[in-house]
């Protein structure tokens, strides 16, 4: 959040609301991306305006996978180094990842309805994304149900690692049902098959969403840090 409540550990008169420049930069970047996507990027000939949702959907999916990948890495290193900061990082990244996965799951059907003619289909990628959402919502619910900080960190790390191991299996088993999802357009072996203007908008969207991820992650991390500090001062 751009406005961050800081100094929860201080007496009320010293607490203040800090303005976080990184969050503001991220919001401006995302807003600029949308302005460009809506007004300055050509319409796709067949899909029409529906295709524009792709500038939210694809970068949100990228951020979700990035966020969950980092949860798994931070979880693995946590079990090795036992550094609380890694646990707070995993917690923050999982929460931001769930938000972006929700964006993916909401924007997908909105596009699918006019283009595919159906809100939802049990396609490999859709199903995988839905299960990612379930795994990490479960992860967050579990975090909320454990009071002891060290126990919570260990359980979360175990779940974070097993969740990452599960993804290839879900992908494999749902892939054995047939897939309908468009294949990758930018990150593929041959050259990107997107006109220059659209490609630029998409790359801008990827960059601004990644910046938004970093800003949200940082804000959420600072919140976790202050919560832990508050807990220590009460104990």
């Amino acid at each position: 959040m751009a406005l961050r409540w800081s100094g929860a550990h201080l007496p009320p008169d010293q607490a203040h609301i800090a303005i976080d420049p990184l969050s503001i930069a991220a919001f401006i970047a995302v807003a600029a991306t949308f302005v460009r996507a809506i007004w300055f990027t050509p319409l796709e000939r067949i899909q029409g305006p529906a295709q524009k949702i792709f500038y939210i959907h694809a970068p949100a999916a990228w951020v979700a996978f990035l966020a969950f990948g980092l949860v798994a890495i931070a979880s693995g290193i946590y079990l090795w180094l036992r550094d609380e900061r890694l646990d707070r990082f995993a917690e923050s990244s999982a929460e931001v990842g769930v938000v972006f996965t929700t964006v993916v799951l909401v924007t997908g059907p909105l596009w699918g309805r006019p283009v595919w003619g159906t809100w939802w289909t049990w396609d490999a990628r859709l199903t995988l994304t839905l299960f990612l959402w379930f795994i990490y919502v479960g992860y967050l619910v579990m975090r909320g149900a454990v009071d002891d900080r060290a126990v919570r960190a260990r359980y979360s790390a175990v779940l974070g690692i097993l969740g990452a191991l599960l993804i290839p299996f879900i992908h494999l088993s749902v892939y054995m049902f047939r897939t309908l999802h468009p294949l990758p357009i930018v990150m593929k072996a041959s050259r990107p098959s997107l006109p220059g203007e659209m490609l630029l908008t998409l790359l801008l969207a990827f960059a601004s969403f990644t910046l938004l991820y970093v800003a949200l992650l940082r804000a959420r991390y600072l919140l976790a840090e202050e919560r832990d500090r508050l807990q220590d001062s009460v104990a």
Binding site: F134, M142, L159, L166, L172
Partner: peptide, 9 residues
């Protein structure tokens, strides 16, 4: 809640 996603595959 934890187990069912893992039971899918």
């Amino acid at each position: 809640m934890l187990s069912l996603p893992f039971f899918v595959p």
